[in-house]
């Protein structure tokens, strides 16, 4: 079933900002069809790690492997080519553009004369929303008219353009209502069902334990425990705070 080689592996990855040790010798593996949660206190290095995977930051030392092959993710577009799609905390959507334009932002389909293939993008967006069971009435609605949860859904749909194999979600349920959280968690389950590897970064242990296969704890930039989803709230909390 599951390949023995992880889709993505970080081996002894470190990243320093001057004297700040954001990541120190961090190991992480993500397999296909798996949701790996990354939890930790503020400043534990979660977002730095996400940015390393997304090609926004390059590691100071250590190795990143995709399909067991060492790679250098030197930029977000390289990450894209390697099949890594990311969603950051600040969603980076264009409020004035509609759902279709936001889903295809920067990856627009173009015809021979460089003209946008609008109809095709619209059809594909509709299919994507359907696929992820996202409920947004119209793909022509400008983003400013959507709720926070719907925007998050649009951004998750965007990650699927270009058929990625790994999706990194940084705090996707922060500042969402319960119903919107429910939607987003359901989308994450759907990504897993589609066979993708998902890295889920979140503060909310409840959400994390609801959808993850494995929970990796970071503390002061270092690995501080790996837990199955069945681990108790207390065990994980202890690892986050360093009580264990």
């Amino acid at each position: 079933m599951r390949g023995r080689t992880p889709l993505l592996a970080l081996r002894q990855v470190s990243r320093y900002f001057g004297a700040v040790e954001a990541l120190v010798d961090v190991d992480l593996e993500v397999h296909a069809h798996e949701v790996v949660a990354l939890v930790g206190d503020n400043g534990a290095g979660k977002s730095t790690l996400a940015k390393v995977v997304a090609g926004v930051l390059s590691p100071s030392s250590g190795q990143v492997e995709v399909d067991g092959e060492p790679v250098t993710i030197s930029s977000p577009s390289v990450a894209n080519q390697l099949g890594v799609a990311s969603v950051f905390q600040d969603l980076a959507v264009c409020e004035n553009l509609d759902v279709t334009a936001n889903v295809f932002l920067g990856q627009e389909l173009r015809g021979r004369a460089g003209l946008l293939r609008d109809g095709e993008m619209e059809t594909e967006t509709r299919a994507l929303l359907e696929h992820l069971t996202i409920r947004i009435p119209s793909v022509r609605t400008p983003l400013r008219h959507l709720s926070a949860g719907q925007r998050q859904a649009v951004v998750i749909a965007r990650t699927l353009i270009g058929q990625p194999r790994i999706v990194v979600l940084d705090e996707p349920t922060a500042a969402l209502s319960v119903a919107q959280t429910a939607e987003v968690l359901t989308h994450i389950q759907r990504l897993r069902e589609l066979g993708l590897g998902v890295i889920l970064i979140s503060h909310n242990l409840n959400d994390v334990r609801a959808v993850s296969d494995r929970i990796e704890v970071l503390r002061h930039g270092r690995n501080n425990g790996s837990f199955p989803a069945s681990a108790t709230h207390e065990e994980i909390l202890a690892a986050i705070t360093g009580a264990a």
Binding site: V178, T181, A182, L185, T186, Q189, N206, R209, A229
Partner: peptide
């Protein structure tokens, strides 16, 4: 209708709170 995934061994206080909000 809405489905919310829950963690293993979820607790009454959190889950009922979420149920009420839903």
């Amino acid at each position: 209708e809405q489905v919310l995934p829950l963690p293993a061994e979820h607790r009454a206080d959190t889950s009922l709170d979420r149920a009420a909000l839903l």
